[in-house]
Design a protein around this nucleic acid. Sequence first.
DNA 1: CCTAACATGTAATCGGTTACATGATTCT
DNA 2: AGAATCATGTAACCGATTACATGTTAGG
Lengths: 186, 186
Amino acid sequence: MTNLGYALLGMLADESRTGYDLAQLMKQQVGYFWSAKHSQIYPELARLESEGLVAFEVIEQQDRPHKKLYHITPAGLEILRNWVTTPAESAPVRDELILKAYCIWLAEPEKAIELFKQEELRHRQQLAHYEQLYIWGEENLQREQRSKHSSLFGKYLSLARGIGHEREYAEWCRWVIEQLEKPDFF
Amino acid sequence: MTNLGYALLGMLADESRTGYDLAQLMKQQVGYFWSAKHSQIYPELARLESEGLVAFEVIEQQDRPHKKLYHITPAGLEILRNWVTTPAESAPVRDELILKAYCIWLAEPEKAIELFKQEELRHRQQLAHYEQLYIWGEENLQREQRSKHSSLFGKYLSLARGIGHEREYAEWCRWVIEQLEKPDFF
DNA sequence: CCTAACATGTAATCGGTTACATGATTCT
DNA sequence: AGAATCATGTAACCGATTACATGTTAGG
């Protein structure tokens, strides 16, 4: 099983979806921590189906093309449940901006400041976006949905991580700018 | 040019190194934000050499196999300098633990707590490691090396990012545990 | 004797992106 | 007339990992 497979099972555990729906979700919500293009999703769904972890029914539509609505099977739910609490394997980090930071001693400080100002702005904007989603969610949250067994719970945990991550990243950018603005010897 | 190419140029801008040395560096320092195995490094060095961005001299050694000591060329330094301050392209995030967090509503809370306790510990240990490196660096830092134009400057910026990242990650794990320990309705 | 460190490469495979391919409907 | 959304697929390519391959010396 691949991580993409688990990601798809996770989305289908919440509700039945088409390949197209799954690809859309990966441009929103889920895309903040896992993503894939439709060209990867369709073959992976076919693979999951061949292993009996998902199944689909063809929905015929007038005025729209037909679609395959996938749902998770009991076997799929079982391996997903088993996976969620097993330790995650640590993937190597590859962050282009930190790589640039490592080499920044070669650059003119003014240009470096400009770069980090742009990056800070980018992360502040993403932070504001996440915070807005968080507020909207809080407002519409019913009492019975405030359960560890509601799929909304998972959405909150992941959104909170996004907020913390973007805030921390933006603050590092700011700190880097401060270091670059300091005179060389003091 | 690939990011790996720039990473190698960045390491060679600091000082001349062999492919073996570069692979070792990517298990330490540089590996915290960019990594590659020797099987990827050797062909990439050959490619950089064919494009005139690096060059090497063969060092014959008694009692050790011969080695190729690579150094950056003026052309290599130029494209590296040009790259460092150009905006970084944002790569999609793929974090297995956040994916698990998203699906955690399917798990038994006790098992979920165990998972996040393990993960918190892992990040606290990595944080302690980074902080130790930071302290050692501070201690041995000479006045003339406290310049934006010293390669140590880049090492500090990247190390600071590692510290911030691990601290924030560990704190999120702790917060998740708190959410999981709360009674469902309160 | 076996393992670790030094030292350099190639081949097979895999996960993911980009591009190719098709086709209907709705909105501007 | 053209773009956007819905809807599903395949093919080529690329970056990265794992495994294959070789050979020396030092140390437990």
